[in-house]
Design a protein around this nucleic acid. Structure first.
Lengths: 414, 414
DNA sequence: CATGTTTGTTTGTTGTCTTGACAAAGTACC
DNA sequence: GGTACTTTGTCAAGACAACAAACAAACATG
């Protein structure tokens, strides 16, 4: 039922597809002429002209000047109008809600953060969230009318059929809250919602360390826990009920041949989360009680004890990543969060563990890199998701297989 | 590069899409009238008529009778002509090559097997494979002219850009052999090639225990090792270089807090493969040297020692499956191979281990079942892949996201 | 200045789907 | 049996999107 039903093709669909095709090309290329679009897309010049007229009328594209001649008439340069619309991106974490307003190219033009306690539950939390959105809408440098979508990230899995939270352990009291519906009705804007790891993955994929990847795994070491976002052929993969990538609760298989029950080594989250790292360092008096992760990473340079903690953490992460690589065969693994993004030691140790534990063919074709977008990843991703939604071509049936074929003989169906 | 370049939409594409749409509906429904097709596809009745005429001309569809009235004129029943073409499916295993000829609905109408030693390398092996195909072509009950595609399964990963083997450990000497090209040129037929686990997954998904699933994981316990095939939204997922699902070489994480190196517990394949199970049973004199897996499963009923071996094996498999479920969130896990398909103990133990080790939300939405197709799965899958290829609609760009959206407000691009 | 090239637009053609009308063949009810 | 209504399938007319070819504008080259 949730399966994307195959669309019937008619003329309007054709137009939609070609318009999306042209639009995506312009977004990717930046500056391009009608003639070049025709060459890239293999559409005729007249068709391109017609589509461009539509897009200019919708003010999604603008003519920004005249290019240089290639031996004939000079081309008119077209550019995507990134300021045609603006998007609000929200990131709900355990103790704060941060919001950004971005243009269609993820340039942040406004940013705001409120403190927040997720444990207060939705009756306290939802009004705060709405209040923040309201403030962003009214006080933003761009007019309210030009903000055209809202994206929201929450820590934990969602029922993605109706945009409700589902009993997330990190969000006590937030069971089955129709966040999407409420916000959509209050603000009369399209609302996209997803969990923070997925959104951060989206952001890194489009604008950060994941650019150009085909299949990407994003591991998110946030203040709330550890999650993963999977991107397959440029698209977020959520699994059957939306819990794909929930690696945080995996018990790292720790056992020996004699006993079958899991030795109580706990979950990946318990062993390798940011909270655990801080706790261990504090217990050993390596940092003070109010030092944060940034301090920890800085002090690590001169502290072999902290380095040992980080190595151990990295090792656990590496084991999880090795499993993911064997199963998933991504060409890039991006590891996000303050510690991975600032501590070279962590990344290097992860690489070493993965090299030992994953299938060598797969490892050799996978680069493991830290995230590149810093503190606002998830909010940016929320904006990214909402943006993508605005320009998504219609969903069509994918080809029935992705197998290996000889193309020397035509298909029957053609 | 390999990324499916977005197709430009024109009138012929429109027709192709709609034709594929109608064809798939007929294949799925079995018996259906033009009017019902129009209702399901939301195409107009006249368009459906036109498309059906094309399909009847191509003899892919036939009018097979008159249905019952629903208060008006009685409908003409259309059926897919499963005997319009036939497919050869090959399964290359370590010590045999088996082949089937199937109609377009996977009904086997001819079957043959030759003994084979994969260690002899391609100079000996390829002629044998070609010989087998030749025999199937000439001696088949259907004429050679009606066989329209060949599918091949090999044990091990492939470079799926050019259909060559890539240094599979189980196929020494078979590095970089252009199997697809050779067969395609020799027999002048389209050739599809893939690894056996992927093909078996395909077969179970279409005709076996995976029917109706959305995201399916297939674990294949073959004589050559352990592999997995992943099906996402009805389509095989192969990863970036085609090694997705290669779980066999994963080192089951066995370690304790003191040491970081992997304790030499070996790979999943070493711990839980069919070969290992047989070896353990033989070492303990529980079966004789020439007993096979069928005997083993039968004797297990009265042998607590064999049961212990199976429980242990199931436990290892369960650990691997739990990881896969956490990462992938499938709604079905199918476990294929002789032992899983005949030993209830194995499946039940796997279920128990998975229930303890995987995220409960995900486990509750995942059914774990044995394979249903028996010994010819992989060959059937090879035929399935080749068949799908014949009727695959053209590849279009997928929508940019699969995120969660409010549909209350339209998109900009429409 | 003549020639050729590149860019963008205009015009007429083609192919596909849809709409609405229609015939054929049935049911339901009087 | 007759009339009204349904359902199925076909046909002709119209809409629409892309294409091909011709054309105009603007430029490079010799």
């Amino acid at each position: 039922m949730n399966r994307p039903s195959a669309l019937t093709a008619d003329l309007s669909l054709m137009r939609e597809l070609n318009r999306a095709l042209v639009l995506q090309l312009i977004r990717r290329e930046g500056r391009i002429s009608r003639a070049d679009i025709a060459k890239h897309t293999k559409l005729s010049r007249s068709t391109v002209s017609s589509i461009i007229n539509d897009l200019i009328d919708a003010s999604l594209v603008t003519e920004t000047g005249i290019g240089t001649s290639k031996g004939g008439r000079r081309p008119i340069i077209l550019e995507f109008n990134y300021q045609a619309n603006y998007i609000i991106g929200l990131d709900v974490s355990r103790n704060a809600v941060s919001a950004v307003i971005t243009d269609l190219n993820a340039r942040i033009c406004s940013r705001r953060q409120i403190s927040f306690n997720v444990n207060d539950g939705p009756t306290v939390g939802m009004p705060l969230i709405k209040q923040l959105i309201s403030t962003m809408l009214t006080e933003s440098p761009v007019g309210r009318g030009r903000i055209s979508a809202i994206g929201v990230g929450v820590p934990g899995p969602l029922d993605f059929r109706n945009g409700r939270t589902i009993a997330p352990p990190v969000m006590p009291g937030w069971d089955n809250v129709p966040i999407r519906e409420e916000l959509s009705q209050t603000f009369r804007l399209p609302v996209s919602i997803d969990n923070d790891a997925n959104l951060a993955a989206m952001a890194e994929y489009r604008w950060g360390a994941g650019q150009g990847a085909q299949n990407m795994v994003y591991l998110y070491m946030s203040s709330a826990g550890i999650g993963a976002g999977l991107i397959i052929d440029s698209h977020l993969f959520r699994g059957s009920i939306g819990s794909a990538g929930e690696v945080g609760h995996t018990t790292l298989s720790v056992e020996n041949d004699e006993s079958f029950g899991p030795i109580n080594a706990g979950s990946l989250e318990a062993l390798a989360s940011q909270i655990t790292v801080l706790r261990l360092a504090r217990e050993q008096k390596l940092i003070s009680a109010d030092d944060d992760v940034h301090t920890l990473v800085r002090k690590a340079e001169s502290s072999p004890e902290i380095q040992a903690i980080l190595r151990r953490t990295a090792h656990y992460l590496g084991v999880a990543i090795a499993s993911i690589i064997n199963i998933f065969n991504p060409d890039r693994v991006v590891i996000g969060g303050v510690i991975p993004e600032t501590s070279p030691l962590l990344i290097e140790t992860i690489r070493a563990t993965v090299a030992r534990r994953a299938l060598s063919i797969a490892v050799n074709n996978t680069s493991i890199v830290p995230g590149a977008l810093g503190r606002n990843v998830a909010a940016l991703g929320a904006a990214a998701l909402a943006t993508e939604r605005l320009f998504a071509p219609p969903a069509l049936e994918r080809p029935a297989t992705l197998g290996v074929h000889s193309n020397e003989v035509g298909s029957l169906a053609s």
